[in-house]
Structure formats: structure tokens, C-alpha cells
Design a protein around this nucleic acid. Structure first.
Lengths: 214, 214
DNA sequence: CCGGATCCGGGTTGATACTG
DNA sequence: CAGTATCAACCCGGATCCGG
């Protein structure tokens, strides 16, 4: 990317991460951890493969990621400098939250993209009770979300001993977790719920404190 | 900008503000407040005039700014939605701070760009004493920086009753404020200091807590 | 001079085909 | 699987032009 030529932290940042797709690649590596080329490609639907290769080269040169050649097929890992972008990703995620309402008909939502918003927007309603684990499953991807000790954590992969499993469209599962729809509506929209649906009540939402104000 | 087509807060944000120059225009409006076209242009050296016009239209359509026609010549103002980008700008500014060390020979630094980093990186060393005001002047732009009650504030424009005025290269003034150089070195680098140089001691730096670690 | 609009060359991106 | 190669379409940058 061409430099803005400005001695300003914002401009210098954009010199490095302002290219198209770059921050989304960082998002993928933050959520998934060490990833292979093909995993990144499926996590970034629509990215031209040559751009992905270009960006990975750029990011390596800039010191944001490392190409780990340990396991015969290359694996990409963020360096601490790359991980330090998490506050930027979080800020963008928060600012973008209102935009999620207006989605185009063929917009895509992959389950693992729930990991960051789950950490940002979900809260543990009842810290004193035992941990609750749920799994969201769509296609062949699973996300594990846990509420325990007042905190919500999330990661890619199957949940261990889940209290409930949500199978079906990720968007429906997400709206259910946010409390925007109830279990009946979720089922109507094609979501299958295994286990104890009551476990879902453990999750609350942080964010705009009031629904209606005037 | 073409949409990423991903239901993800980060991707949706970038759909709106991911275009080249867009976030820097927001930075200008955050720092300067209501601004005219020409003011934005001089605050964004290098921006092609057609791009500035295009982006202002895009930002207005996206609801991030308003075109205020009150005073016969149009004035651009951020809406609350636009101002809500401040955490994003801050996060980028913080992440980009280490990059400021490596500047190209013809990189530009305009005085008003100090406003955001002054708020982010400077601290008031002695909250109990009376307020201290300084002014940084380079070319025909001035920035007022104040330390009072434990907080540092900064804004574009001349300082009222400054304790000290720094006249000369903005980069030198900034390095002096950060404590990276002393008054003698600053003078050697072409900075003129009027008033009480001792007032500068009032400012400390927040940031990487240790200079050397091992 | 202010506030843009228009035009054009070149670089970047997007889509797809291909290869070790 | 992990990219490279190719090419069209689009976006950006630089210059010029134009109406108040």
C-alpha cells in the first residue's frame, strides 16, 4: 500500500493494515489461532486467492504474523505485534454492531465469526451457578460458548459436555442467544435445539443499556 | 466500496469506512470539529480533490456527517454516529505509535495532528499545582495543550495566556513534550521557546511503562 | 480564491484457470 | 493443498477545468 506520508499514528497504522482484506485476515487469525492457507480461505469467503497470498506476504514483512513451517504444510500465526490489533478489531466490531441489522440477501455468516461478538456482547446472567456450555453448529463448523464465574468465553471447535446444542442457521442461533427471538421462533426459522433449552437463559446481553428511550 | 458480504461487525464497519482516506477524513473532523472543504484539504495533504468530494458524499449518505449550509459556504460536521468512531481512531493511534519512529524523509506533520496523541499519551505530572498552558506553533497553525487537575487536554487554535510557546518544527516540539529530547537539543533542532521552559516539566508520558526491559 | 466536476493513465482488485 | 498466472474491471492519483 502506498503510504499517506503523514506522521500520525492513525495514518501510519493504515499504511500497514489499511489494504482491503488485511484486517479481516487478522480477525481470522485472532479467532482461529494458528491457521493454514486453506482454512483462512474458507474463513474469508470471496477473497481472491492471489490477494490472500499477497497479504500474507505483506503481513509477514510487517512483522504481524509468522509463517510456521514446523508441520510440513505452512501454518500462519500472529506475532505479539499482530495480536496487539485486537483492540482495533474490537472497536470496529462494536461500531459495526448496528450495521448487522441491515444484511444483504446473500451475506454469509460463518459460525466462528460469533467468537468475537460472543465475548463482546454476551454476559453471564448468574455468576453464582455452575458453568453452562453450549455449542452452535452450522454445516461442519462448531463454536463453543461458555458462561462461568460471571464471564462468557468462546472459541472455535466443539463444546465439551454441552448443556445445549444449537444446530442450524448461525444467524438464528445468534439472535436466540441475544434474546431477540425466543425458542419457538428459532425453531420456526429452522434451528434445532438439543439438550436443555433452559441453559440459554444463562446468557444476557451487554450493549445499548436501554431498548427504548425518548 | 464493494461489500465484503459478511455478517460480521468488523466486515460491516469496513464496508463503510474501509475506503482509502475515509478514516483520515473522520480524524480531521474529530480534531477540528466543523470544517470547510478547503480546511479538510489542507489537513489531508496528498488527497486528490475528487476523492475528497466523493468521500464526503459517501460519508453523508452513510450518516456519519452532515453538510451544514448555514453559512453560505458549506461546512461539514460529524453526526453522533460519526463521532462514535473515536474509539476506533484511538485504537489505531495507539497501535500505530511505534510506527512513528520510522518516518520517511518527506513525511508531513501538521500541528493539529498533535491533538489526539496529546490526549492519549501525555499526562499531568503534578495535578495539585495550577493549570499550565502551552502553545505549539508551526507555520500558521497553532495547537493549545493544557495540563490541569491531572488531565491533559488539547485543541486546535492559539492558547490563552500560555506559559510557554514552542515555535518551529512540530516534530521537534512533540519530541520535547514526550521527553525524548531536552530543551538544549530542541533549540539545536530549530525550535524556538518563548516563556517559561520549566512549564514543560509538567507533562509526562503514559504508554510503554518501561523504556528498557530484558 | 472556494468548492468542487471531469478526464485520463496506471495500479489494485476480483474472477478464474492453472500448476507443483 | 497451497499457492501462481492471467486478464478484465474498477479504484485511485494527478492534472485540468469550471461556475460562483
Amino acid at each position: 500500500m502506498r503510504s499517506y506520508g503523514q506522521i500520525c499514528g492513525v495514518a501510519k497504522s493504515l499504511d500497514v493494515i489499511g489494504d482491503r482484506w488485511t484486517l479481516l485476515i487478522v480477525r481470522e487469525l485472532l479467532v482461529r489461532g494458528a491457521s493454514r492457507y486453506t482454512e483462512l480461505r474458507t474463513g474469508l469467503p470471496g477473497i481472491p486467492t492471489n490477494l490472500l497470498a499477497d497479504r500474507l506476504r505483506d503481513l509477514e514483512e510487517a512483522g504481524l504474523l509468522r509463517r510456521d513451517l514446523a508441520s510440513l504444510s505452512a501454518v500462519y500465526v500472529l506475532t505479539p505485534r499482530g495480536e496487539a490489533l485486537e483492540p482495533v478489531i474490537d472497536a470496529l466490531g462494536r461500531w459495526g454492531a448496528p450495521l448487522l441489522a441491515s444484511t444483504a440477501p446473500d451475506d454469509v455468516l460463518l459460525p466462528h465469526w460469533l467468537v468475537l461478538p460472543a465475548r463482546l456482547y454476551l454476559t453471564d446472567n448468574d455468576p453464582s451457578k455452575r458453568a453452562v456450555r453450549i455449542e452452535v453448529r452450522d454445516g461442519h463448523e462448531q463454536v463453543a460458548i461458555k458462561a462461568a464465574d460471571g464471564k462468557v468465553s468462546a472459541r472455535l471447535g466443539p463444546a465439551r459436555k454441552p448443556d445445549a446444542i444449537l444446530i442450524g442457521p448461525t444467524l438464528v442461533a445468534w439472535r436466540l442467544l441475544l434474546g431477540k427471538i425466543d425458542v419457538a421462533q428459532a425453531r420456526e426459522s429452522g434451528l434445532e435445539i438439543e439438550g436443555k433449552a433452559a441453559a440459554l437463559k444463562r446468557f444476557g446481553t451487554v450493549g445499548p443499556p436501554k431498548q427504548s428511550k425518548h
